[in-house]
């Protein structure tokens, strides 16, 4: 129950973080890539990490 709650809190946090209005007009390069693109690339990787944690419960009872 607690794990589930924490997962959904993390998912909501990701939803909020997806709306990165804070560098809307910023083109500072991160490893050569504009920050607006680098950030969302990182966002995809962090999402994969969260899903890796959540997916462990899938199929535990195969239902």
């Amino acid at each position: 129950m607690l794990k589930s709650l924490l997962f959904w809190l993390a998912a909501v946090a990701l939803f909020v973080l997806h709306n990165d209005v804070w560098w809307w007009h910023d083109a500072t390069p991160i490893l050569g890539v504009p920050i607006g693109l680098a950030y969302h690339f990182g966002f995809c990787l962090v999402t994969a990490l969260l899903m890796a944690v959540a997916a462990r419960r899938l199929g535990s009872d195969d239902s």
Partner: peptide, 18 residues
Amino acid sequence: KSARSFRLPVVAYPICVA
């Protein structure tokens, strides 16, 4: 094949998209 089969799609999908 089983509910467990969804594990990889759930985890790898964001990486494939990127």
